[in-house]
Amino acid sequence: MNCLAFRRRLLAAPRERTPAEQAHLEGCGDCAQLATDLSALDRKIGRTLRLPVPDGLADRILLPRLRMRRWHYGAAAAALAAAIALALMLPGLIDPDETALAADAVGPTHPAVAAISMVVEQEPALLKEGRTGDPLVMQQKLKYLGLELRKSDVSIRYIGQCEIGGAACDHLVLVTPEGHVSVILMAGEHLSTRVLVADRRMTALLSPAPTAGAYIVVAESPKAVKRARRLFVHG
């Protein structure tokens, strides 16, 4: 190994050293001096990069997950009761034979796949922001589609807007006994049949709305989606 090759390597990776490079270092005073200088430079860079970290940083990151745990356990009994109630009330409405299509089967631009992407990628930040829209406005929008939220043990966590396939849609996040359920209202979408799609560990059900447009329900499983859909009655 000559000095030029050694120095190129040294500048790029002062800490990575092959046996050949080590041998060269031990036999070349000039390169050894350069290695010493670069080690000192790297120590200085390292000291500068290692900024003080804000107090309680890890705890602040963990806090949302701790809150989720409390909700998780607290809601377990309610979830069980709700599941039983739904099973008793709606025995014929859940179609156990309906299987979800893979995202590949419908393509990445399909509204159901785009809705799952939005829920996975954007929704956590929206929920974290804590902003929410007007429930009365949302009620009117639901009514336009011929829907009404059934009064049950469901609360609204978020009301806002999102974009699905380039179209502005209304976005609703519900806290149900079975977890968060996202609902996207697509007033401009025209469908005749419903489509169930699974992607990224989530399931989305795209359905024509009773009077106009369509809506998508996104939840963590096909069963949860189908049950969540029953939260709406035709208005």
Partner: peptide
């Protein structure tokens, strides 16, 4: 990486500081 280190090393005071720290 090489070019970044060359730039940092070329700054007035940085190379001196590096040598002093060595």
């Amino acid at each position: 990486l090489s070019r970044a280190r060359l730039v940092l090393r070329r700054q007035p005071g940085l190379a001196d500081g590096a040598e002093a720290a060595a």
